[in-house]
């Protein structure tokens, strides 16, 4: 199953919002994935397929081969949907 992380500074507010949106998008598309919200300070990056976060935080993420999705505007669900589906397509084609 796809493993997706949504990341923000404290892992309590924005990342949970991103998780809600991501799950809504995936559900509408019928894609199964596990979505977790975490904070940038204590996140682990092993066995993760996709990381969704903001440009300023994505600079701080190291040692991962997960695909990064950067969103400047976290409430912009359309952009999130486009980027997410594109990345999932890439991953599936790569397999």
């Amino acid at each position: 199953m796809l493993q997706i992380l949504t990341v923000c500074g404290a892992g309590v507010g924005s990342s949970i919002l991103l998780k809600v949106y991501t799950e809504q998008i995936l559900q509408a598309e019928g894609i199964h994935a596990e979505v977790q919200s975490v904070d940038i300070g204590s996140m682990g990056t092993t066995n993760v397929d996709i990381i969704i976060t903001t440009p300023d935080l994505s600079k701080l993420i190291r040692n991962t081969d997960a695909k990064l999705i950067e969103l400047v505007n976290l409430t912009d669900k359309t952009t999130l949907q486009n980027k997410l589906l594109e990345v999932i397509k890439e991953i599936r084609e790569g397999e």
Partner: peptide, 12 residues
């Protein structure tokens, strides 16, 4: 009403 850090990316 959303959480404050949503505004952080545009205001580093």
């Amino acid at each position: 009403g959303f959480d404050l850090p949503l505004l952080f990316p545009q205001h580093p």
